[in-house]
Computed example of a mutant assay.
Amino acid sequence: MMPVHENLKGRVAVITGGGGVLCSEMARELARHGVMVAVLNRTAEKGKRVADAINQQGGTAISVQADVLDRASLEKAREEILAAFGKVNILINGAGGNHPDAITDSEVHSGEPSGKSFFDLTEQGFSKVFDTNFLGAFLASQVFGEALLAAEAPVIINISSMSAYAPMTKVPAYSAAKAAINNLTMWMAVHFAPFGLRVNAIAPGFFLTAQNRDLLLDENGEYTERSQKILKGTPMKRFGQPKDLLGTLLWLVDEAYSGFVTGVTVPVDGGFMAYSGV
């Protein structure tokens, strides 16, 4: 277990998508360091489970229903959080995911009229995935930005992906959105640097989550062909676990450790991005 960062005690973190596999782990870890956590989730029950677990373990958390693509919903959540905690020091833009309507069936175009091709992707599906991963981070940063600027040691953490650097096959909307997240992270870092608001991102490698389980495991729970490709390209030869992100998270949110770090995206990928394949 990592040492407690004492200077994080009493700070407030807002985590969008806080009911998900990776962000719920982040929420629990921040709470262990004395951070008061607001778990934002479109599905209220998922967020409530995370908040309840934190409170039962002696931390402080609330669950707030919010849709990151609905500004009014985010504004309502902000007022509820400020009423409960009085401030916001940390924003983690973790809401994201994929959708079948934005995923091709094959990795490359086959020319055959079978399966879902690039030409079968719907505008609605593509937009939904792009907006959830990118526009949601933009809107949440806007809505919580002024509260962050008024707080001590403010920081925004965006969640990127390996697909931002080299787009994964089958998932063009997700890949494009994560590439945009890296760019937005740098833009906001420059924009807010004179006011002390640091903006960074974490780019997880391949983690087994609810969103990608069907791509990585077959009906028997065995690794798919896609999984085998990923592991072959990952020098550490395993998928990431949620706890693998926590050290990087703590480093980035604690200004005592990373006070001069802004505008970077940190890969946590088991060496995937460094490996050429030979």
Rank of each mutant, 00 (worst) to 15 (best):
I230L: 15
L217F: 00
P194T: 02
K243D: 14
E219Q: 14
P235L: 08
T209H: 03
G221D: 07
V266K: 05
L245N: 04
V171I: 15
A193V: 05
T224M: 04
S175A: 15
T262V: 07
V264C: 07
N183C: 08
G205C: 05
I202N: 04
I181A: 09
S258E: 06
E225R: 11
G221M: 11
W251T: 13
S227T: 13
T262W: 02
L197N: 01
K229G: 04
P204Y: 10
R226C: 00
F239V: 06
L208P: 00
F260G: 00
P267N: 10
H191Y: 13
A210F: 01
M236Y: 13
G233M: 15
Q228M: 12
E225L: 11
G247W: 01
G240K: 00
E219K: 15
L216G: 00
P194Q: 03
R198S: 09
A180Y: 12
A201P: 05
G263Y: 08
A201T: 09
T262L: 06
P172Y: 11
M168V: 07
L250E: 06
A177S: 15
G240E: 03
A256I: 01
P204A: 09
N182E: 15
D218F: 02
A210Q: 14
T209C: 06
V261L: 03
Y223R: 12
P204Q: 05
I230S: 00
A180R: 12
A179L: 03
N212E: 04
L250M: 11
R198V: 10
V253H: 09
A173M: 06
T224I: 10
L217M: 15
F206C: 03
S175C: 13
G221L: 07
A210T: 13
W187D: 04
V190G: 02
T185W: 06
F207T: 04
R198I: 07
T209P: 01
G196H: 13
L217P: 03
F207W: 08
T224W: 00
L250V: 08
S227Y: 01
T248N: 02
A179F: 04
R198K: 14
K229D: 11
T234W: 11
T169H: 07
L208T: 00
T224R: 09
P194C: 02
D244P: 07
W251V: 12
H191R: 14
F260M: 14
K243N: 13
N220Y: 10
Q241K: 14
T185D: 10
E219M: 06
R226M: 13
I230D: 00
D214R: 14
I181K: 10
L208C: 04
Q211Y: 01
G221Y: 01
G196P: 12
S258I: 08
V264E: 08
V199D: 02
V264R: 01
I202Y: 07
T262F: 03
M188R: 14
R213F: 02
M188N: 13
K170Y: 01
